[in-house]
Amino acid sequence: MGRLGHRLRFAGKKLLRMVLLLFGVSAVTFALMAASPLDPLQTNVGQAALGSMSPEQIAQLEAYWGMDVPPLERYLSWLIGALHGDFGTSLLYRQPVLTVIGQRLRSSLWLMLTAWILSGVLGLALGITAGACRDRWPDKLIRGYCFTISSTPAFWLALLLLMIFSVWLGWLPIGLSIPIGMDAASVTLLDRLRHAILPALTLSITGVANIALHTREKTIDVMESDYALFARARGERPLAIAVRHGLWNVALPAITLQFASISEIVGGSVLVEQVFSYPGLGQAAVTAGLGSDLPLLLGITVVTAALVFAGNLAADLLYGAVDPKIRRGAARS
């Protein structure tokens, strides 16, 4: 067996778990949508338009929205298609689901990636600073900030930033990902960046709090640990201890936090993109949910679940690289 065998077994187990997770997530999403009281025709066509239609036309529309097929049958046909790589066609966008997701993901990815890196780096730095300066003013300041932000809803913060920077100061655009009424070809990278600043900032600000608070706790644990005391007893300076012993030991939980925060950022992006009318994956999810676009919603759910799962998997693998107990333990078994 040895190391490779262990790794393969580990990967196989994880893969199986991911398949089960995606299956479960899609089934739950479908069941919720099937139980939803929303009538797709009334929502998307409108009461007035429906009233002026002939029964044949209505029957045609019902067939388009799949209302004449029993739910279980619909789910199974979606599942079989999905297993073959065909996620169907979005009913609202009239494009293949994967194409829509691809487009949306591209604009969201920058947003989420920026927020993810920014909140991770800032959160780690603030957390370590607060932990090392425990109960002194930097700690109090950072903790105060974190508690305030943690208890602030992301959409409210988004509105606040929008008000200050777009409405009052007029520095940044109010919404969307590119300027209104501009030819797509003449949109510059700078335009895109300017539009992404506020949504990314909102996501980062909220993400920082959680990571900083957890990192602070861990830093305090490390600084009060027996080995930090012994390092001091052996004449090592506090700063050297924080770097030599603190960083690695804080890195372990920080990795978990950082990758677990992917789910929070994906979740947060749904609300934040809505506020900024930013045409990303989150906004598409809301549109699909409210408009009964089942194929698109299922596609988005499965893709984001896979994204979150991949994040946790990456954390597990990195853990093995950082923690010698896992690394050497794995090598031995």
């Binding site: 027996d226 080995y227 005391l229 007893a233 052996r234 004449g235 030599r244 012993h245 923690d323």
Partner: peptide, 23 residues
Amino acid sequence: AEQLRGDEIVLIPQGVTYLDPLM
């Protein structure tokens, strides 16, 4: 004490928890 500890004055601690687990 800060200058001398680790060189002239040393501590032999209780057990393995006084070693950094990741080093």
